[in-house]
Simulated scan of single mutants.
Amino acid sequence: MLKCFEKINWAKTGIFAAGVLFGTAGIKALSSDDAKKVYTGCTAAFLRAKDCVMKTAATVQENAGDIYAEAKQQNEERAAAAEAEAVEDVEEEAEADTTEE
């Protein structure tokens, strides 16, 4: 009967038993009321941070919309100015052709 105990690696068995003990104690510690208070506090902090980030993102989106609208208007004004300049050039060429004849 003692020969079967000789084949057991007591170091590995001891490490396994210690792991089970620490795991059980860890579960007890993680499910305690104090730990739940910490989890609640951390979750509340993350929710506050999320609200802050969302407000900042909304502000950035509003500013980006304003910038886009202004850029679009500026491009339209430039296109209108370029078109007016092209019309003037055509009129000047037509005038120059009539005076040469």
Rank of each mutant, 00 (worst) to 15 (best):
L2G: 13
L2P: 00
K3C: 02
C4M: 09
C4V: 05
K7P: 00
K7E: 12
I8T: 06
I8Y: 03
I8L: 10
N9Y: 06
W10M: 09
A11K: 08
K12A: 14
K12W: 06
T13Q: 05
G14V: 03
F16C: 00
F16Y: 02
A17L: 09
A17H: 03
A18Q: 02
A18H: 00
G19T: 05
V20S: 04
L21F: 03
F22H: 03
G23K: 00
T24A: 02
A25D: 09
G26M: 01
I27K: 01
I27T: 02
I27R: 01
A29V: 04
A29D: 02
S31C: 05
S32R: 05
D34L: 03
A35S: 13
A35P: 01
A35N: 10
K37I: 00
K37D: 02
K37S: 01
V38F: 06
V38S: 08
V38E: 08
Y39W: 14
Y39Q: 10
Y39D: 11
Y39S: 09
T40Q: 14
T40A: 11
G41R: 03
G41Y: 03
C42I: 12
T43C: 13
A44S: 14
A45G: 10
A45V: 06
F46Y: 09
L47A: 11
R48P: 01
R48V: 10
K50A: 15
K50P: 00
D51P: 01
C52N: 15
C52R: 13
V53T: 12
M54A: 15
K55L: 09
K55H: 11
K55V: 11
K55C: 09
T56N: 15
T56C: 14
A57I: 11
T59R: 13
T59L: 15
V60T: 13
Q61M: 15
E62G: 13
Y68M: 11
A69G: 06
A69N: 13
A69L: 14
Q73F: 04
Q73C: 08
Q74G: 07
Q74N: 14
N75H: 02
E77F: 04
E77L: 07
E77N: 12
E77Q: 14
R78V: 04
A79H: 08
A80V: 14
A81N: 13
A81D: 12
A82I: 05
A82D: 06
E83K: 11
E83A: 15
A86D: 04
V87W: 09
E88C: 09
D89P: 01
E92M: 12
E93K: 04
A94M: 07
A94L: 08
A94T: 12
A94N: 13
A94Q: 10
E95P: 00
E95I: 10
A96Y: 13
A96R: 08
A96G: 02
D97L: 04
D97E: 13
T98D: 12
T99M: 12
T99C: 12
E100F: 07
E100Q: 12
E101P: 01
